[in-house]
Amino acid sequence: MTRLVLASRVLLAAVSAALMILPVAAAESTSHVPEPRELWTGPMASDTPATLEGAQVIDVPALEKLLAEKPLLIDVGPADRKPDGLPASTIWKPTHRSIPGAVWFPGAGSGELPDEKVEALLQRIGELTGGNKSAPVVTFCRPKCWASWNIGKRLVKAGYTSVYWLPAGVTGWQERNDTSPVEPEAGWTPKPSGGQSAAK
C-alpha cells in the first residue's frame, strides 16, 4: 500500500514537473494577482491575473481549436530596440516571430497610450474585423506580459464581445507549433535608438 502511495506521489511529482516546464498548459491559473479595474500601468513584465473580465482566457490547445473560426490574432509583444553603444559595424537585424497570420502592434499593450494612438489602433482592428464586434479576436505576447492583458481589456471596453486572451503567448504556441516572422503594423515600428523606450 505504501509503495502504491509512494509511486503515485512520484507520478504526481513528475506530471507536475512536466506541466511546469510547459507553458502550453493553463499553468497561469495559479496566479493570485487581482484584476486591476482599469488598464495596468505598472511593470509590463510581471505576474498577470488569472482572468480578464469580459474576455475568455485560453491556452494553446484551445487556440488551436479556435483557429477554425479564423480569429484575428493580435500580437503586442515588444519590438527589439537597437541598443545604445553598439559599434557601427554591428549587423542589427531584429526579427519577430509570431503565430502565423498574426498582426503585430509592438507597444500597443501599453496602459498609457496617447489618445490618437488608441484611436488609430481601434480603427485598424475595426478594419481587420470588418467592423464586426462579435468577431473572435485573440490577444497575446509572451508569458507574464501585461501588454496582452491590457489590449484585451481595451477591446472589451470598446465593445468587442469575443475577446480571447492567451497568457502563454508565442512562447506557449511555439512549444507545439511553428512561428512565422511578422512585420509591425504601419505606425507601430519601434522608435530609433536613443532615449527611453517602452518597458519590456
Binding site: L6, A7, A18
Partner: peptide
C-alpha cells in the same frame, strides 16, 4: 514491485517527453 517500476518508468517518460503526451507535437 512491478507496479512501482512501471509507474516510475511512466513518470520518467512523462518528465522527459511531456510534449509526446499531447496532440500536435512540435516537429520544429
Amino acid at each position: 514491485m512491478k507496479l512501482l517500476r512501471s509507474l516510475v518508468i511512466a513518470a520518467v517518460f512523462t518528465t522527459a517527453y511531456p510534449a509526446a503526451l499531447l496532440a500536435g507535437v512540435s516537429m520544429i
